[in-house]
Design a protein around this nucleic acid. Sequence first.
DNA 1: AAGTGTTGG
DNA 2: CCAACAC
Length: 770
Amino acid sequence: MCEEDFDEQDDEWALLPDHHQRTVLHIDVDCFYAQVEMVRNPSLRDKPLGIKQKNLMVTCNYMARSLGVKKSMWLKEALEILPNLVLVDGSDLSHYRQFSSKISAIAQTFTPHVERLGLDENFIDVTDIVGNYLCAQNDKIEGHVYGDKVPNVACLGDQCGCGCRERLIAGTYIAKELRQQIHATLGLTCCAGIAHNKLLAKLVSGYHKPNQQTVLFPWQVHDIMNSLHSANSIPGIGYATSKVLEELGILTVQQLQNSAFKILTSKFDNETSQRLKDLSLGIDETPVKKSGRPQSIGLEDAFQKIISVAEVREKYYTLLERLLKLLADDGRIPSSIKVSVRKFNTGKMFRQRETKQAPLSSSLFTQGGKNVNEDTKCTLLNVIMGLFHKMVDTSKDFHLTLVGVGFNKFIERAHDSQAISNFFSKRPREQITRQSLDYEETDVMKRSKLCQASNNTQTVNLEITQMKSCVSSSEITQSTYSINDSSENFKDSFNNRLLFETSKSSTDVKYIGDKVMVDKTNENVSVSDTRKDLVLSENCNIPDKLVNNEKTSTQNPEKHVPFLLPSGIDREVFIALPVELQREILDNSKQNTNVRTEKVLQFKQVSPMKNNLIKNKKIDNYFKPQVSVSTIRPNVHNKKKGSSVSVEELCGTGIPCTVNVQEKDCQPSCSYTMKDSSQIQCSGTSNGETILNSNRDSFRVESSPRKSCITVDEIDPSVFNALPECIQNEIFQEQELAKQICSFQPKKTLICSNRKRRNSVSILKYLKKL
DNA sequence: AAGTGTTGG
DNA sequence: CCAACAC
Ligand SMILES: Nc1ccn([C@H]2C[C@H](O)[C@@H](COP(=O)(O)OP(=O)(O)OP(=O)(O)O)O2)c(=O)n1
Ligand SMILES: [Mg+2]
């Protein structure tokens, strides 16, 4: 055991002041897959429901849980406990993905700082909007306070004084509103946790389930951390780490809190040791990182046994066909493929998978457009089988239990010269390529007046929620939340995308008590029939005063943030834009830079250990990137003259390198040392053009004078709107980059660009308003 | 364990 | 490329 348990004297721990500057929400949908299935088929609501994949019941609804069934049970096991368990196959994730992206989209109407975790969880950093929800003179809290017996207790005294109390209380209003919107829009209930960092928000969100929310104040951190038992109940400490901790005699969170630095560093590197300690104390400075589009798209298939190459090929082919569809929907081009197998293990199931990757030529995908041709399929299958043979010696017997394929390292689809002729002609919207299927393909909804409505209405039984319909057409037929006559108004013929706000004829829905009013173009039509179960499910507990709301809605913030569009952006145009662009417009208009929120990362994520011994003295460690990529670009310009060296990316390319910035004769000059030790040199010229010379590759660099920072409102909206989505996207990327650079240090400005970006730069000048 | 996804070394 | 972690 660890005899140094209470040895806190060694000052090797970096003892940081624990800040409470942020307000972070974590939301987690209740029994996600099961709820989605119940929304899709309401007759399942009053039955114990399990969702299965193969022989596993991945989740089940709360009724089933109350009857003794647990998440992640074997089907067999679950049926023994509950023979009349209703089962729905959940192998097809597409419905879950759709709902998932809509959840994130709703969160993104509050703030862009939304990080997805799996399909049903989101972290939301609401620090920059809590100000809009601060209410004078009230201690009223929405939902539970950690440790309370009943919800809505008055706030205990402020034991901190830094303002976190007010911010967190404001956070409870945001969480409440967000949850209501998710419910009103999608029919899903969820839990929320409100705290000053991600770890605590996540931990606390699970304290009252289902359909409830809980806030944790900084002075309760000690309590909540000590209420945990085994170390691996901390998110981030998984199986492997806790096994190693066990070897050190560290089993509980408390033991980890009291562990000595030296003990941990005997098995983990310094960063990890510090991170583990911090986690045990509830300290977590990791930022809420905006989730972009997925980094990988993959499929796998598990089975009892496969022993012939023919079967393997068959399996891979089936997966490939499905995967290519997902890929086409995504719209990007993968530059790498990954193939995996799981071999049958006689003994334990150590060593789960093996994978092999191979680069892919982008030309495989640039020809047929969306639908890859048969040749490509064939080529890919051959690549896959090639990789397979690297893993499995087929001259001997083999026994596989899983095969998988995935694409990664995506690049945006290039737009070639033919596109330029189309820039100024209006193309039918249908021809415009869709950027992504998933969570980028989301909707923006208007929320501003909604909570005001609820503020003014105190007499109804249920809190009023008024939303524009935003269910997709496919859901309209299935969801009880649908509105019969809404299809025309809400379906965007463009790419089958639904808009939350469209024309004047959009339909408002009000949920009032157990009745629903449909308010169409200001003409009230009451709908009474099937709407009852629409309001709030009778099977779900509805605590948190969703039901008896008395005055709670008056506690909602007066101030709300409506969408303010930057000048020059027409609302209609805005709405027609892909969500990604909408978001960027909103970002830009708020003058947000990533730098503010995505601060220097002081702690890396828990990292796995290698051979149970982590190097901790290698000089290397001191030169690992300390900042997230998005902060790097601006930092380049803050570098001191002379020879400051740090790890960077090669401006905007994502390629890691070491940058050495110097200034000679007022011209920026820097050299980049790439990972493979190759060198890229660059020096500025007076005409604003810079060419990078590399012994490895050629990079085109444009040193951008300030005037090239073109903002969207310099572009005629109608012209802009007529552009293909992909070009619009580029322009925004360009602007984003320009904005960051302009807002930092225009003095030394280097913009590295690839070919694609150069195109969009050159076309910008044609788009400026006269 | 299904089936996916992200990240750090 | 893989291990570790997450849902
Ligand atoms: N190992 C896992 C864990 C989860 N999921 C899926 C099924 C769940 O429905 C969904 C969300 O996971 P959660 O852990 O949040 O579980 P639930 O949402 O189902 O239940 P809870 O109400 O406890 O959040 O992800 C999965 O496929 N495999
Ligand atoms: Mg969940």
